[in-house]
Protein backbone atom coordinates (compact mmCIF):
# COMPACT_ATOMS: atom_id res chain seq x y z
CA UNK A 1 0.00 0.00 0.00
CA UNK A 2 2.73 2.38 1.03
CA UNK A 3 4.84 1.42 -1.96
CA UNK A 4 2.05 2.13 -4.46
CA UNK A 5 1.52 5.52 -2.85
CA UNK A 6 5.25 6.20 -3.02
CA UNK A 7 5.25 5.12 -6.65
CA UNK A 8 2.47 7.60 -7.36
CA UNK A 9 4.40 10.48 -5.81
CA UNK A 10 7.51 9.41 -7.68
CA UNK A 11 5.53 9.37 -10.93
CA UNK A 12 4.15 12.87 -10.37
CA UNK A 13 7.59 14.12 -9.39
CA UNK A 14 9.17 12.60 -12.49
CA UNK A 15 6.59 13.96 -14.94
CA UNK A 16 6.60 17.44 -13.40
CA UNK A 17 10.40 17.50 -13.50
CA UNK A 18 10.32 16.42 -17.14
CA UNK A 19 7.68 19.00 -18.05
CA UNK A 20 9.36 21.90 -16.25
CA UNK A 21 11.93 22.80 -18.96
CA UNK A 22 9.11 22.94 -21.52
CA UNK A 23 6.66 24.94 -19.45
CA UNK A 24 8.92 27.35 -17.62
CA UNK A 25 10.36 29.35 -20.56
CA UNK A 26 6.87 29.73 -22.04
CA UNK A 27 5.55 30.89 -18.69
CA UNK A 28 8.45 33.32 -18.33
CA UNK A 29 7.74 34.81 -21.76
CA UNK A 30 4.03 35.08 -20.98
CA UNK A 31 4.70 36.80 -17.67
CA UNK A 32 7.33 39.11 -19.15
CA UNK A 33 4.93 40.16 -21.90
CA UNK A 34 2.90 41.92 -19.15
CA UNK A 35 5.98 43.43 -17.49
CA UNK A 36 8.22 46.42 -18.20
CA UNK A 37 11.64 46.60 -19.82
CA UNK A 38 13.15 48.04 -16.62
CA UNK A 39 11.69 45.25 -14.54
CA UNK A 40 13.05 42.61 -16.94
CA UNK A 41 16.57 44.01 -16.93
CA UNK A 42 16.57 44.29 -13.14
CA UNK A 43 14.95 40.99 -12.11
CA UNK A 44 13.29 39.06 -14.87
CA UNK A 45 11.93 36.34 -12.57
CA UNK A 46 9.85 38.77 -10.50
CA UNK A 47 6.17 39.31 -11.16
CA UNK A 48 5.32 42.73 -12.58
CA UNK A 49 3.66 45.17 -10.13
CA UNK A 50 0.61 45.25 -12.39
CA UNK A 51 -0.44 43.87 -15.77
CA UNK A 52 1.02 46.13 -18.43
CA UNK A 53 -1.58 45.42 -21.09
CA UNK A 54 -0.28 48.47 -22.96
CA UNK A 55 2.60 46.26 -24.19
CA UNK A 56 0.10 44.52 -26.44
CA UNK A 57 -1.41 47.81 -27.56
CA UNK A 58 2.06 49.08 -28.40
CA UNK A 59 3.01 45.90 -30.26
CA UNK A 60 -0.23 46.05 -32.23
CA UNK A 61 -0.12 49.74 -33.20
CA UNK A 62 3.27 51.30 -32.40
CA UNK A 63 5.39 48.36 -33.58
CA UNK A 64 3.00 47.81 -36.50
CA UNK A 65 2.18 44.20 -35.70
CA UNK A 66 -1.31 44.79 -37.03
CA UNK A 67 0.39 45.14 -40.43
CA UNK A 68 2.45 41.98 -39.93
CA UNK A 69 -0.59 40.00 -38.85
CA UNK A 70 -2.44 41.29 -41.90
CA UNK A 71 0.48 40.24 -44.14
CA UNK A 72 0.62 36.81 -42.53
CA UNK A 73 -3.14 36.35 -42.91
CA UNK A 74 -2.93 37.35 -46.58
CA UNK A 75 0.01 35.03 -47.28
CA UNK A 76 -1.21 32.07 -45.22
CA UNK A 77 -4.79 32.46 -46.45
CA UNK A 78 -3.70 32.40 -50.10
CA UNK A 79 -1.29 29.51 -49.55
CA UNK A 80 -4.01 27.54 -47.75
CA UNK A 81 -6.53 27.98 -50.57
CA UNK A 82 -3.98 27.18 -53.27
CA UNK A 83 -2.62 24.12 -51.49
CA UNK A 84 -6.12 22.88 -50.64
CA UNK A 85 -7.06 22.99 -54.33
CA UNK A 86 -3.80 21.76 -55.86
CA UNK A 87 -3.12 18.99 -53.33
CA UNK A 88 -6.66 17.62 -53.73
CA UNK A 89 -6.43 17.67 -57.51
CA UNK A 90 -2.92 16.24 -57.73
CA UNK A 91 -3.49 13.76 -54.90
CA UNK A 92 -6.59 12.41 -56.64
CA UNK A 93 -4.84 12.11 -59.99
CA UNK A 94 -1.88 10.11 -58.62
CA UNK A 95 -4.06 7.82 -56.54
CA UNK A 96 -7.26 7.24 -58.50
CA UNK A 97 -6.64 7.90 -62.17
CA UNK A 98 -4.84 5.73 -64.69
CA UNK A 99 -2.69 7.74 -67.03
CA UNK A 100 0.71 7.42 -68.66
CA UNK A 101 3.52 8.86 -66.54
CA UNK A 102 1.75 8.42 -63.21
CA UNK A 103 4.65 6.54 -61.61
CA UNK A 104 7.13 9.11 -62.86
CA UNK A 105 4.99 11.91 -61.45
CA UNK A 106 4.82 10.18 -58.08
CA UNK A 107 8.58 9.75 -58.11
CA UNK A 108 9.03 13.48 -58.87
CA UNK A 109 6.78 14.36 -55.92
CA UNK A 110 8.77 12.08 -53.61
CA UNK A 111 12.03 13.62 -54.81
CA UNK A 112 10.69 17.11 -54.23
CA UNK A 113 9.97 16.19 -50.59
CA UNK A 114 13.55 15.24 -49.80
CA UNK A 115 15.03 18.17 -51.74
CA UNK A 116 15.58 21.02 -49.28
CA UNK A 117 14.72 24.51 -50.58
CA UNK A 118 18.24 25.56 -49.59
CA UNK A 119 19.74 23.34 -52.25
CA UNK A 120 18.19 25.48 -55.01
CA UNK A 121 17.81 28.76 -53.14
CA UNK A 122 19.96 30.84 -55.47
CA UNK A 123 18.33 29.74 -58.77
CA UNK A 124 14.92 30.16 -57.11
CA UNK A 125 15.61 33.79 -56.25
CA UNK A 126 16.68 34.29 -59.85
CA UNK A 127 13.42 32.81 -61.16
CA UNK A 128 11.47 35.13 -58.84
CA UNK A 129 13.51 38.12 -60.02
CA UNK A 130 12.93 37.23 -63.68
CA UNK A 131 9.19 37.00 -63.07
CA UNK A 132 9.35 40.54 -61.63
CA UNK A 133 8.14 39.35 -58.23
CA UNK A 134 11.08 40.52 -56.09
CA UNK A 135 10.07 41.91 -52.69
CA UNK A 136 6.44 40.86 -52.98
CA UNK A 137 3.99 38.82 -50.94
CA UNK A 138 3.05 37.08 -54.20
CA UNK A 139 6.58 35.64 -54.41
CA UNK A 140 6.25 34.23 -50.90
CA UNK A 141 2.79 32.81 -51.65
CA UNK A 142 3.83 31.09 -54.89
CA UNK A 143 7.15 29.71 -53.65
CA UNK A 144 5.64 28.49 -50.37
CA UNK A 145 2.81 26.77 -52.24
CA UNK A 146 5.12 25.09 -54.75
CA UNK A 147 7.78 23.96 -52.28
CA UNK A 148 5.32 22.72 -49.65
CA UNK A 149 2.82 21.12 -52.06
CA UNK A 150 4.36 17.58 -52.21
CA UNK A 151 3.64 16.78 -48.54
CA UNK A 152 -0.10 17.62 -48.57
CA UNK A 153 -0.35 15.91 -51.97
CA UNK A 154 0.85 12.63 -50.47
CA UNK A 155 -1.51 13.17 -47.54
CA UNK A 156 -4.45 13.55 -49.94
CA UNK A 157 -3.26 10.52 -51.90
CA UNK A 158 -3.37 8.39 -48.73
CA UNK A 159 -6.89 9.63 -48.03
CA UNK A 160 -8.14 8.86 -51.50
CA UNK A 161 -6.55 5.40 -51.31
CA UNK A 162 -8.60 4.59 -48.21
CA UNK A 163 -11.84 5.13 -50.17
CA UNK A 164 -13.23 2.00 -51.86
CA UNK A 165 -12.91 2.02 -55.64
CA UNK A 166 -16.41 0.50 -55.91
CA UNK A 167 -17.90 3.89 -55.04
CA UNK A 168 -16.44 5.42 -58.18
CA UNK A 169 -17.53 2.48 -60.32
CA UNK A 170 -21.05 2.70 -58.91
CA UNK A 171 -21.10 6.35 -59.94
CA UNK A 172 -19.85 5.48 -63.41
CA UNK A 173 -22.59 2.85 -63.81
CA UNK A 174 -25.07 5.56 -62.86
CA UNK A 175 -23.70 7.60 -65.73
CA UNK A 176 -21.41 9.99 -63.86
CA UNK A 177 -18.48 11.41 -65.82
CA UNK A 178 -14.92 11.05 -64.49
CA UNK A 179 -15.13 14.68 -63.38
CA UNK A 180 -18.43 13.92 -61.67
CA UNK A 181 -16.88 10.98 -59.79
CA UNK A 182 -14.04 13.24 -58.62
CA UNK A 183 -16.07 16.32 -57.76
CA UNK A 184 -19.29 14.83 -56.39
CA UNK A 185 -18.28 11.43 -54.96
CA UNK A 186 -14.59 11.35 -53.98
CA UNK A 187 -13.93 14.92 -52.83
CA UNK A 188 -16.91 15.04 -50.44
CA UNK A 189 -15.76 11.71 -48.95
CA UNK A 190 -12.22 13.02 -48.47
CA UNK A 191 -13.40 16.07 -46.53
CA UNK A 192 -11.51 15.20 -43.35
CA UNK A 193 -8.33 14.82 -45.37
CA UNK A 194 -8.87 18.21 -46.97
CA UNK A 195 -9.41 19.74 -43.53
CA UNK A 196 -6.09 18.29 -42.31
CA UNK A 197 -4.34 19.68 -45.36
CA UNK A 198 -5.86 23.14 -44.89
CA UNK A 199 -4.80 23.32 -41.24
CA UNK A 200 -1.35 22.01 -42.07
CA UNK A 201 -0.86 24.50 -44.91
CA UNK A 202 -2.03 27.44 -42.82
CA UNK A 203 0.21 26.63 -39.86
CA UNK A 204 3.16 25.87 -42.10
CA UNK A 205 3.05 29.17 -43.94
CA UNK A 206 2.21 31.13 -40.77
CA UNK A 207 5.34 29.72 -39.12
CA UNK A 208 7.73 29.72 -42.07
CA UNK A 209 10.81 31.89 -41.83
CA UNK A 210 13.06 31.15 -44.81
CA UNK A 211 10.95 32.25 -47.77
CA UNK A 212 9.77 35.52 -46.20
CA UNK A 213 13.37 36.21 -45.15
CA UNK A 214 14.60 35.62 -48.68
CA UNK A 215 11.88 37.38 -50.67
CA UNK A 216 10.69 40.27 -48.50
CA UNK A 217 12.94 43.29 -48.18
CA UNK A 218 10.48 46.07 -47.29
CA UNK A 219 9.54 45.90 -43.57
CA UNK A 220 5.90 46.80 -44.32
CA UNK A 221 5.55 43.44 -46.09
CA UNK A 222 7.04 41.25 -43.35
CA UNK A 223 5.05 38.30 -42.04
CA UNK A 224 4.67 38.03 -38.27
CA UNK A 225 7.18 35.21 -37.73
CA UNK A 226 9.84 37.02 -39.75
CA UNK A 227 9.06 40.38 -38.14
CA UNK A 228 9.58 38.93 -34.66
CA UNK A 229 12.99 37.55 -35.57
CA UNK A 230 14.04 41.03 -36.69
CA UNK A 231 13.32 42.41 -33.20
CA UNK A 232 16.62 41.14 -31.90
CA UNK A 233 18.69 42.44 -29.02
CA UNK A 234 20.92 44.59 -31.17
CA UNK A 235 20.26 48.19 -30.23
CA UNK A 236 21.23 50.22 -27.20
CA UNK A 237 17.66 50.44 -25.96
CA UNK A 238 16.20 46.97 -26.09
CA UNK A 239 12.46 46.64 -26.30
CA UNK A 240 11.85 43.21 -24.80
CA UNK A 241 8.20 43.54 -23.85
CA UNK A 242 7.07 44.39 -27.38
CA UNK A 243 8.77 41.29 -28.69
CA UNK A 244 7.27 39.11 -25.96
CA UNK A 245 3.78 40.51 -26.58
CA UNK A 246 4.18 40.05 -30.35
CA UNK A 247 5.29 36.43 -29.81
CA UNK A 248 2.20 35.73 -27.74
CA UNK A 249 0.06 37.31 -30.49
CA UNK A 250 1.75 35.04 -33.06
CA UNK A 251 0.50 31.91 -31.23
CA UNK A 252 -3.13 32.73 -32.12
CA UNK A 253 -3.75 30.24 -34.98
CA UNK A 254 -1.96 27.40 -33.21
CA UNK A 255 -4.03 27.93 -30.06
CA UNK A 256 -7.24 27.87 -32.10
CA UNK A 257 -6.16 24.60 -33.74
CA UNK A 258 -5.13 23.10 -30.41
CA UNK A 259 -8.43 23.94 -28.76
CA UNK A 260 -10.72 22.97 -31.62
CA UNK A 261 -9.09 20.61 -34.07
CA UNK A 262 -5.95 19.02 -32.64
CA UNK A 263 -7.25 15.48 -32.43
CA UNK A 264 -8.51 15.40 -36.01
CA UNK A 265 -5.40 17.14 -37.25
CA UNK A 266 -3.00 14.64 -35.69
CA UNK A 267 -5.13 11.67 -36.71
CA UNK A 268 -5.06 12.93 -40.29
CA UNK A 269 -1.35 13.59 -40.16
CA UNK A 270 -0.44 10.11 -38.99
CA UNK A 271 -2.67 8.39 -41.55
CA UNK A 272 -0.77 10.25 -44.23
CA UNK A 273 2.61 9.65 -42.67
CA UNK A 274 2.17 5.95 -42.24
CA UNK A 275 1.18 5.33 -45.79
CA UNK A 276 3.65 7.85 -47.29
Amino acid sequence: MLSTKLMRYALYGLVILLALPFVFPSLWVFMASFSTNTQITMDSLALPDRLYVENYVHAWTGAKFSTFVYNSLAVSGSVTVLIGLLATMLGYAVSRLDFPGRRLLLLLIMMAIVTPVFSYLEPLTRVVRQLGLSNSRTAVILTTTATFLPVPTLLMRSFFLTLPEELGDAGRVEGASEWGVFRHIMVPLARSGVLTVLIFAFLWSWNDLLLPAVFLQAPDKYTIAYAITTLKPAGFRQDHVTMFAASIISTGPMIVVYLLLMRRFIAGLTVGGLRG
Binding site: L86, M89, L90, A93, P100, A112, L124, V127, T145, W179
Partner: peptide, 24 residues
Protein backbone atom coordinates in the same frame (compact mmCIF):
# COMPACT_ATOMS: atom_id res chain seq x y z
CA UNK B 1 -9.36 9.58 -67.16
CA UNK B 2 -6.38 10.79 -69.18
CA UNK B 3 -8.17 14.02 -69.89
CA UNK B 4 -9.17 14.58 -66.26
CA UNK B 5 -5.63 13.69 -65.13
CA UNK B 6 -4.22 16.30 -67.49
CA UNK B 7 -6.57 18.95 -66.08
CA UNK B 8 -5.88 18.02 -62.45
CA UNK B 9 -2.12 17.64 -62.79
CA UNK B 10 -1.29 20.59 -65.03
CA UNK B 11 -1.67 23.54 -62.59
CA UNK B 12 0.35 21.86 -59.84
CA UNK B 13 2.97 20.61 -62.26
CA UNK B 14 3.42 24.05 -63.81
CA UNK B 15 3.86 25.66 -60.38
CA UNK B 16 6.32 23.03 -59.17
CA UNK B 17 8.06 23.13 -62.51
CA UNK B 18 8.73 26.85 -62.24
CA UNK B 19 9.55 27.05 -58.52
CA UNK B 20 11.00 23.61 -57.73
CA UNK B 21 12.15 21.45 -60.63
CA UNK B 22 13.59 24.17 -62.85
CA UNK B 23 15.67 25.83 -60.10
CA UNK B 24 16.67 22.42 -58.72
Amino acid sequence: QWLLAAVLVAPALIMMGIFVFYPA
